[in-house]
Nucleic acid binder design. Structure first.
Lengths: 146, 146
DNA sequence: ATAATAAAGGATGTTTTTATCTTTTATTAT
DNA sequence: ATAATAAAAGATAAAAACATCCTTTATTAT
């Protein structure tokens, strides 16, 4: 088990992939190419992108030359938008030991330590923009496969 | 989805509970009391403790006056031992985006940022000992329920 | 208009995680 | 020895996550 669900891992990788493939050039990229580009099961990823599209995080058009893309505004959105859309905000606000009532006044043993870690994750994802890695992905410095 | 699996959340809370109930006094605490004390499903927790017992992280004896307890050495073990036993070490070493080949020479876009976060989690859990919160748990400053 | 294309939508299947129940084994007190 | 107790072990079940397949809808090119 990682920090994110598998669904969310695929989602983030897919959005990065769409971003670097379509940023600037008014082009689209199809589900097949995306799935191949991030090593994910195609039909499962289709469902994930369908959901992200409904939620306005990615854009899409049907038909020939259709596919997924990201408009200028989407490229500037923080990664946290993807995570919240897919996994919710538990990773940012939930108790590390799973206690519903855990809080400042009723803390679990790890409350303060985990608060810092969760905050750090939250800030990292808020400060990182979807379009931020396009250059490095194009040049191959960064990887989205396997 | 939290940082840990539900199984692991229950495991940590249960071990904390056993620790503060039995530390010092050569007493034992039964599965029923533990499950009640940490708000967990009793039969599921029984399986978890059975596993932790096999792995030597908690001690147990059967029969009347039997139950679970922690010896002196166990009380000094780090929390990371519980997490590794239950969830494995993915949380410490795995790629945030789920990439098997992610590494320094083939990094995903979030590699360095996540490395720091994972390290921080790792160090926190290595530096925190199982018996560390007994006093606060007895006095009720800290909570393991709901 | 028509055929081809590609995502959207809906139904379904599989695997893993979470949870329960029943029987067995070890220990203790009588 | 026997009965009572409590964890261990094994089998089973329910829920959630992960994954696939088939049909429909929107778009484009001819």
């Amino acid at each position: 088990m990682g920090i994110f669900s598998k669904t969310c891992e695929y989602a983030i990788r897919a959005v990065f992939f769409i971003a670097h493939k379509t940023a600037g050039q008014s082009s689209r990229v199809g589900i097949k190419e995306i799935a191949g580009g991030i090593d994910s099961p195609e039909p499962f990823l289709a469902k994930i992108l369908q959901d992200l599209s409904r939620k306005g995080i990615v854009q899409s058009t049907k038909g020939p030359n259709g596919g997924f893309y990201l408009d200028a505004a989407s490229l500037l959105r923080p990664l946290s938008d993807i995570v919240e859309a897919v996994d919710g905000d538990d990773i940012f606000y939930g108790c590390g030991l799973g206690l519903k009532q855990c809080s400042e006044i009723n803390p679990c043993p790890l409350h303060n330590e985990f608060k810092e870690i969760r905050n750090r994750i939250h800030h990292l994802l808020q400060d990182t923009k979807i379009g931020e890695f396009n250059d490095e992905l194009i040049t191959g410095i960064l990887s989205l496969k396997k």
